[in-house]
Amino acid sequence: MNEKKSTSIKGLVFREFFLGRKSYASLLIMAIVVPFMFMLFMLSAKFGNLRLMEDVDEIIETIYIMSLYMPAFIFSSAIYGILDAVSADFNTKWNGYMFSTPVKAEKFIGIKFGIITCFTIFSVIMSILSAVIFSSVAGKSITSDDISIIMCIIALCDFAFTFYIVLAYALGINKATSVFSFAVVACILGALFSFIKFADEHMVVDNPFELLILENARMIAPFTPVIIIATIIIGYILCVKFSKRRER
């Protein structure tokens, strides 16, 4: 028998990035364009036409808040490239073909979740760095509440995307999309109901929405590293289990 060398993962990693390239390209464009737009708005609000508006201070504050938190959404959405790859796995006959190859599910799924882990770390670093830069430019300091909200955004995006990937392996891509959409709508309705209830209880507060987010973020933030790690580990375990499932 031929002496066999071991395989590297380079080709499979390349495959994941190639299939998600359109999402990564969109992310890169957004990561450049959005901060640039914020900068332009800020400049206009301080030195240009927008400063002539009555509520310019409110506009500056809104732009500032968005510039702090929007990068977290943008960088977290890098995981969307993995969703593109998962979708391609199901829409071509790749998943069936993988059964005929010597690649174990642990390796194949492990590569996907390894990339998700890397993107998550990247999101945390880049989001906090962006927040520090924008707050410096605005002449303000980043607060622990800002970090809490950023971590919650990343944890939420991680959870949502991982949940979708697990659903895809459990149910197939079409059913996963339906179930995920239903879950998102349910969450939005739940959040809306919570907000209305909260606003009723705190009628005297000026901005109940901001207070609701802050209260929840403060509560959840200490646990976000655990949530992110648990999401990735449990997501990996479940995806391996479902992908190894044999037709009954």
Partner: peptide
């Protein structure tokens, strides 16, 4: 969207030989 060259890159990670 793959071409043959890219498929070769992928399969080099699949088969030891």
């Amino acid at each position: 969207d793959f071409n043959a060259k890219q498929i070769s890159i992928v399969l080099s990670s699949v088969f030891k030989n």
